[in-house]
């Protein structure tokens, strides 16, 4: 506890930390939890237990002058739990929509998530489209028929361009491009509404008016 108050004290001199609520969406086993694990602990586990419900983690990330504290909600991928997702992406300022570049179905699912986020999440949410498991296609030559790659970079980039998303191909296994995703998101997050730092977003239902971010879509989300 002492540590924490000291932290606060120190922080009043440091550049303000902005908290960003970030949610991960995507089909089961595309590597959402692995990406988070890589980002938070710089670690990788071959047999990561499936996520059920949603897992919560935090990680700080410095971008230029700013420190961003990500409050990450890593959701479950199984279709069965899709209806729970609004619980977690409500009020989120950022989302990672993840697919597996070796699984075409996961890309289709990613499209759905992007659409749903645009319809249901807050209007100014920053979304990154992430094609994961890049390590599996690393040594591919172009036009190689035996390639494991099933979703091309171009397809991913096209979807991102159409929908106004950031786009990355990553590997949680080799750490390729993982930090870049979070740095990329961080630099796109507008500074203004986040200046209310760790302070709880006021109490009860009385938050919304003061902040631009909060639940514009709240009413229709569920």
């Amino acid at each position: 506890m002492e540590l924490k108050s000291y932290d606060k004290y120190r922080m009043s001199f440091a550049p303000p930390t902005t908290s960003v609520k970030l949610v991960l969406l995507g089909e089961a086993a595309v590597g959402k939890s692995s990406l988070v694990l890589r980002f938070v602990s710089n670690d990788f586990q071959e047999n990561k237990e499936p996520t059920i419900g949603a897992a919560f983690l935090t990680q700080k990330c410095t971008i230029g002058e700013r420190t961003i504290k990500y409050e990450i909600w890593d959701t479950a991928g199984q279709e069965r739990f899709a209806s729970l997702a609004p619980m977690y992406y409500r009020n989120a300022q950022a989302a990672l929509v993840v697919y597996d570049i070796t699984k075409p179905a996961s890309f289709i699912k990613a499209r759905h998530w992007v659409k749903e986020l645009h319809e249901q999440a807050s209007k100014d949410i920053t979304i990154a489209l992430v094609g994961n498991k890049h390590d599996l296609v690393e040594d591919d030559n172009d036009g190689d028929d035996s390639s494991l790659r099933k979703v091309s970079i171009e397809e991913g980039q096209k979807l991102a361009d159409e929908e106004g998303l950031l786009f990355f191909e990553t590997s949680a296994k080799t750490a390729y491009n993982v930090n870049e995703v979070f740095v990329g998101i961080g630099s796109k997050i507008p500074e203004a509404p986040l200046l209310k730092p760790q302070q709880p977003q006021a109490t009860d239902g009385r938050i919304d008016l003061s902040t631009g971010t909060a639940p514009a879509a709240d009413g229709c989300a569920c």
């Binding site: 897992a55 739990f81 619980m87």
Partner: peptide, 18 residues
Amino acid sequence: LKQLDVQIEFITMNWWLL
């Protein structure tokens, strides 16, 4: 918890699903 803006159901939901 309410004052901290904790969503209790986020926590218990996981417990129940598992």
